[in-house]
Each structure stands twice: as C-alpha cells, then as structure tokens.
Amino acid sequence: MSGYHLHTDEELFVLIKEGNHRAYTQVFDRFYSLLYLHALKILLDEDEAKDLVQELFEMIWLKRDSLTVNGSVSAYLYASTRNMVLNQIAHKKVKTKYLDSLGEFIGQEDYLTDFYVREKELKRIIEKEISALPQKMSEIFKLSRTEYLSHKEIASRLHLSELTVKTQVKRALRILKPKLGFIIGLMLLFIL
C-alpha cells in the first residue's frame, strides 16, 4: 500500500482532491464499515445502508474538486452520512404518503377502469424505456426489477462481478428516473 496508511485523514483528503485514487481507497477502507454501521443503526436495512454509504463515497470522488471539509474528515463523513440518511427517511415518508393517496384513489370504483388503462399504458412506456437501455444494462435491470434477483444472483447468472451489476442498476436508474418521472407527472396531471 506504499505508505498511505500512515497519512492522516486530512492529508488523504488533500490527496483525494488532487485525484489520487490510492488515497481515496485508503479513506474508503478506513471509514466504510464505520459509516455503514452508522447508517444501519438508523435505517435498519443492510442493503439501504450499503447503498447509501456507496453513494456517499461515489459523491466524494465525483465532487472531489469542489468539496471543502471544515474540521476533521471523520466528522464530515459522519455528518454527510447522517444527512443522507435523514434525506432518505424523508423521501420514504413522501413516497408512503403518495402510495397511501394512490391507494385511496384506486379504492374509488368510478376511476378503476381509467386507472387500469393508464397503468397498462405506463407499463408499456416503462418497458419501452427499459428496452432502449444498452443491451447488458437492460438485461441486468430487468433481472433486478422484474425477477427480483439480488445483485449477487444476477452476477452469478451473468458471470459478472457484483459491483458491475450494482453499477449497471444505478446507471439504469439514473437514465430512467428523469424520463419516467416526467411521464408519470404528466399522467398524474390527467388523473387529477
């Protein structure tokens, strides 16, 4: 590891800002488990906690040029993890409220037929957008979302690394969310 383990967290962070991947790996190795446990304690879901900490480290690398740490790196990482957890909890609450209101809407018999027509159309649009993804990404995403396979099961089935599967699913979501969010928004406008 050529001495990176001897650097302080702050020295490593300066190296990360310069694009040093070994320094980044060292910070990841030092903090991943601790941040994962911190997130898990609140979220109570292993996969969500892992994903959240992975997203934090991805954000650090992608935004390394503009990140500023006032104080210790460990305090910054813990605060960032806490904030991401709180954002995720808030997002879940909004999602739950939306699903509850949608459930009430579905309960109204007058609108059931219209709802099923729109649901069928939405499924068709979603399938079309998924099919428009690159072939391997589409295949991985379908296994994840329609066959409900874990990243490990998909990796085993397709002879890929688990990290590759996870990355492909995240990329697919990044591509699909803006497209499908707009379409769902439009459909909701016509429902209301």
Rank of each mutant, 00 (worst) to 15 (best):
M1W: 12
L6R: 04
T8E: 07
D9Q: 08
E11F: 01
F13T: 10
V14A: 06
I16N: 07
K17I: 00
E18K: 14
E18R: 12
G19T: 01
R22L: 09
A23Q: 07
Q26F: 00
Y32D: 06
L34I: 14
L35W: 14
L37M: 14
L37V: 07
H38P: 09
A39M: 03
A39N: 03
L43F: 02
L43T: 02
D45F: 05
E46N: 04
E48K: 15
E48Y: 10
A49Y: 07
V53M: 14
E55K: 11
L56Q: 08
F57S: 03
F57E: 03
W61V: 00
R64N: 14
R64C: 14
R64S: 13
S66I: 05
T68P: 00
G71N: 05
S72Y: 07
V73I: 14
L77A: 08
Y78H: 11
A79V: 03
A79I: 02
R82K: 11
L86S: 03
L86N: 06
H91F: 06
H91A: 12
K92P: 03
V94P: 02
T96R: 11
K97I: 06
L99R: 14
D100K: 06
S101N: 11
E104D: 14
G107M: 11
D110A: 13
Y111K: 15
T113W: 09
T113H: 13
D114I: 10
D114A: 14
F115W: 10
R118T: 07
R118P: 03
E121D: 09
R124A: 15
R124T: 12
I125K: 12
I125E: 13
A132C: 05
A132T: 04
L133H: 13
K142E: 12
L143V: 00
S144P: 01
S144M: 01
R145C: 09
E147G: 03
Y148D: 06
E153R: 08
E153Q: 14
A155C: 05
S161I: 05
E162C: 05
E162N: 04
L163V: 10
V165K: 04
V165F: 04
K166I: 00
Q168Y: 11
R174Y: 10
R174V: 02
P178L: 02
P178A: 01
K179L: 15
F182K: 15
I183S: 05
I184W: 10
I184S: 08
I184D: 03
G185W: 12
M187Y: 08
L189P: 06
F190R: 07
F190L: 06
I191Y: 12
